[in-house]
Design a protein around this nucleic acid. Structure first.
Lengths: 202, 202
DNA sequence: ACCCTTTCGAGACTGCAGTTTCGAAACTAT
DNA sequence: ATAGTTTCGAAACTGCAGTCTCGAAAGGGT
């Protein structure tokens, strides 16, 4: 019998995992999402395709894993001001989404996600939830600081903040240069306003 | 020589165009974006695949054309209230984006657009510009009505409003049921606030 | 030592879907 | 009529995702 959770058989070579994610990231920036082939990834990584499919069920999952590799969306440090905190947050998001390779990949991935509940689930727990929590943490700081009376509609705020950046970059195709300042000012004004009149219509 | 703008050669059969868009729309709602194949479209339309590729450079363009077929994003009628106008606008957007078929198609298309400037250009003039103009018209009504002192940062507002719906549906995967009311209330508060203190930090 | 299991790289194989080619048909101009 | 051009549907072509097999290697259990 086996001793504990130890696996029998030859253990996986962690360098293979790294080689795969590295190859995907490289090729993603070279040929883009649409031009990326599993065979090319295997060749670039110096491994067999079987080693890829032993880890990921589909090509999309492989790319997904490579994209999120170490992509922890960290909350910017406390600046002491809600406006500046939001500006910093917007800058982080813009920074992550400005990488043109990851950009197209993310959108294509969202297309896949719309048709694949499993992938959607993973995407939510990996990306959406942590980011939402980060947003909440940032706003809680403002509440503790006294800048806001209470937390706003967090679901809405989260969708609004990230969604605005997304739309700005990939739908409007505007220059992200001064987006952080403009968005932060807008969001800040909205937050202060809604916090004081939380349910104006009822 | 040719007489006027008349084309020489066999004229295109307009029924082919209609058959294509109809087949795409049907199949899109039956099998979704990922499951849609050009062969299936051709078969359903009773035509050859060449007739499709003579009209559209890629499968994505074909789907894009079928989706936007007659999909003019109309501005909701004047309700006499900014809040209700925004609610109606949000409902229109949610309505358009709630079709699960169009959902995946739009996101996949955005992925294509990120790597195809030609497609991006067409998408902008066909979708983005008219929608932005519609948003502006709705806000101008509020200004004329006296609810707002001036138009806000329209680039930002447009990205915010549509982007929030997009993120809400396709990233957060929340129920769109009460989104229009919540978004409209949020946007309304923000607009009134920013309009009264347009440049608070300078 | 000897088995058993699993991973490894390599490559062949399969099935499908996007794209192109082809001969026939439809139309205009001369 | 005839030539030239373009569209038509059918079928062939191409390329890739995904699967499978192979012999070798790396572990652990007994």
């Amino acid at each position: 019998m086996e001793h504990n959770g130890q696996q029998v058989g030859r253990p996986r070579d962690s360098r293979v995992d790294e080689a795969i994610t590295a190859a995907v990231q490289e090729l993603l920036s070279e040929v883009g999402y649409a031009g990326l082939t599993v065979a090319a990834v295997a060749e670039r990584a110096g491994i067999g395709k079987a080693s890829i499919y032993r880890r990921y069920a589909t090509k999309h999952e492989m790319i997904f894993a490579a994209i999120i590799h170490g992509e922890v969306l960290e909350v910017p440090p406390d600046t002491g001001s809600l406006l500046e905190d939001l500006t910093a947050l917007a800058r982080v998001i813009v920074g992550h989404l400005s990488n043109p390779a990851a950009a197209g990949a993310l959108m294509s991935l969202l297309g896949e996600i719309a048709a694949d509940p499993t992938l959607a689930e993973r995407f939510t727990t990996t990306f959406v939830e942590p980011e939402r929590a980060g947003n909440a943490e940032l706003l809680e700081r403002a509440v503790r600081r006294g800048e806001l009376e209470r937390l706003p509609d967090m679901d809405l705020f989260h969708a609004m903040f990230g969604g605005t950046v997304l739309s700005w970059l990939f739908i409007s195709h505007h220059d992200p240069h001064d987006l952080p300042e403009r968005l932060a000012r807008f969001a800040c004004a909205a937050l202060r306003s809604t916090a004081h009149q939380p349910l104006p219509s009822n």
